[in-house]
């Protein structure tokens, strides 16, 4: 058992400040355990969003020592020893209170993405046939737990606040899951280029590095979508090919 100091961001009427709390750390504890302990012992009103505490719901996103992470999946044993641990809310979203941020923009953006539209069923009983090899790619994207850490770390949103021009990594993954779905027949490339601003991504891969589900956001979702957009809008040869193959 060791005592560790946590510098936790607390909002106040004039904005906010880091406040130091000390608590006991026992074997196997994660950062969220420490926050709960502090909440129970010192600060009943310390606001933190959490549900499953198992890395599955994606609620407890925050920045631990400056790294966007899930608090429930960050083990205390991975923290540098003897140093205080800083915990602050995600920077890319407005703070509601303490560690809780307003992530509603993500729900709005998602709603603006054209919904799943399947081709007509393959079998008379109204079902479809899909090969596992064709859905492997989509299943990777569907692992997303919507923790929005990728949105948080993406500098287009974090630094430049272009939430209304760029949908962000999470929604690129969502788009990819729909666009590459073997049953889907909707075309989202136009939206990707314009409304969802895929061109704003400059592929610096921060989203991939923070993803707790290890989704290869940049390589498997964003870049293939950029290529699909290029097929349609930036490739004169493809355009010719399309005209003649019609």
């Amino acid at each position: 058992m060791a005592k560790v100091v946590f510098n936790i961001w607390r909002t106040n009427p004039s904005g906010g400040e880091f406040r130091a709390y000390e608590t006991d750390i026992t074997e196997g504890m994660v950062v969220l355990d420490a926050v709960h302990q502090i909440q129970a012992e010192h600060a009943n009103d310390l606001a933190v969003r959490w549900n499953c505490k198992a890395g599955k719901c994606g609620s407890c996103s925050a920045e631990i020592n400056g790294h966007p992470k899930l608090m429930c999946m960050t083990r205390m044993s991975d923290m540098p020893e003897g140093k205080p641990v800083s915990i602050q809310p995600m920077k890319a979203f407005p703070v509601i209170k303490d560690l809780v941020t307003d992530v509603s923009v993500n729900y709005r953006v998602k709603k603006s993405i054209k919904k799943f539209k399947p081709r007509s069923p393959d079998a008379p009983d109204g079902t479809w046939r899909m090969a596992q090899v064709d859905i492997d790619r989509v299943q990777e994207f569907r692992k997303c737990i919507e923790c929005f850490l990728c949105q948080d770390v993406c500098h287009v949103l974090r630094e430049h606040a272009l939430h209304d021009k760029f949908a962000g990594p999470r929604h690129m993954v969502y788009n990819a899951a729909l666009e590459m779905h073997p049953l889907d027949i909707e075309d989202r490339t136009g939206d990707l280029k314009n409304a969802h601003g895929i061109g704003f991504c400059n592929i610096t891969k921060c989203c991939t590095t923070v993803c707790p589900e290890n989704i290869h956001i940049t390589d498997n979702a964003i870049i293939p979508l950029k290529e699909r957009v290029a097929d349609k809008f930036y490739d004169p040869l493809m355009k010719l090919f399309r005209i003649f193959s019609k």
């Binding site: 920045e63 400056g66 790294h67 966007p68 920077k91 770390v153 500098h155 287009v156 974090r158 630094e159 430049h160 272009l162 021009k165 760029f166 601003g197 061109g199 704003f200 991504c201 400059n202 610096t204 921060c206 590095t209 923070v210």
Partner: peptide, 22 residues
């Protein structure tokens, strides 16, 4: 642009690869 993940940048404007030249 950015210097590293979750590190602040030297400039405010950003066009990305959305417009000329990139």
């Amino acid at each position: 642009d950015p210097p590293a993940c979750a590190v602040s940048e030297p400039r405010k404007t950003y066009l990305g690869e959305n417009s000329f030249p990139l």
